[in-house]
Amino acid sequence: MWKKISGLAIIGIIFCSLPYMVELYRMEVLIVLLFNLILAQSYRLVNTTGDWSLSHIVVMGVGAYSSALITKLLGWPFWLSLPVSGLVTAFIGFLIVFPLLRTIGFGFFIGSFALGEFVRLIWVKFRDPFGGPRGLINIPSAEIGPIDLYQPIPFYYFCLIIAAISIWIMYRIDRSHIGDTFKAIHTDPVLCETIGIRVPRYRAMAFVIGAFFAGIAGALMAHHQGAIDPHNFEATLMVYLIIYVVVGGIETFWGAALGVIVMTVIFEITRPLEEWRPLIAGCILILFLVVMPGGLDVLLPKTMKLFRKIPGIGQLFT
């Protein structure tokens, strides 16, 4: 118990002090890191039922477009539009997953891609209200009552709070009976069906909950960037999301977050090689899928065990 609390406290302190440890221009990276943490964890939640979706980045876009349109056209305040866009995204997520419940595995993967692409093409096609290929601009920046969240540091802390709440809720779901049911469905859907678990219902539930949090991440992103367009939610970015989850691994709850952090660090280190970035990402993806499937969260405990065996260094890790 105390080990857990102290671990969380250390992570909390690190995240709270990060803005003061980096140069101001790096704040952008930190904020994007928080979006990606929510996004990757929500993607992992969908994956626990065994359904790999290829539409999650578009689902995030639904949140971004909803919040942008709600604040721009309806003039609702940001604090209201944030949860509402989460709900809108969850609803659209339901519409996407419902026809896919007959498919499994690769069919689900490709089918989700097709329906996601369809949603994305709607944004490209209809200038009113989605702005067509150029997207939406002049999205109001985030503010809550008198607090202006336009500046990077306040916005960072706001996102940190939202990310912490979102991840905490997803953690509770993962630990609950519902989370167990998701994982059981992944392992043996036929058995689950015969003990009265309505498998399609739970698969849809995982997708919809995942969509809700992806929508929250998208809404935060929209107000941060001030402008969004359909290119922000292309398949290429979906591959990056897959990289986070594959690198981190889905065996344990924190795998996806680990993947996001590791990849963000790698991308920052290789910043001078900007145009080579996709190549690096591609190599890492292939490396993890081919050489070490299971990702870091399977690899790390093994490495830790090795470390513990070394006298002297071992004590540091126990």
């Binding site: 790999w52 595995g105 690769f106 993967f109 591959v239 897959i242 990289i243 594959v246 996709p278 190549l279 990402a281 591609g282 190599c283 890492i284 993806l285 292939i286 899928l289 081919v290 499937p293």
Partner: peptide
């Protein structure tokens, strides 16, 4: 899925 995702990495390369 693993093969499909890995070849998605190959497209980047």
């Amino acid at each position: 899925l693993a093969g499909f995702m890995a070849t998605a990495g190959l497209t980047f390369i």
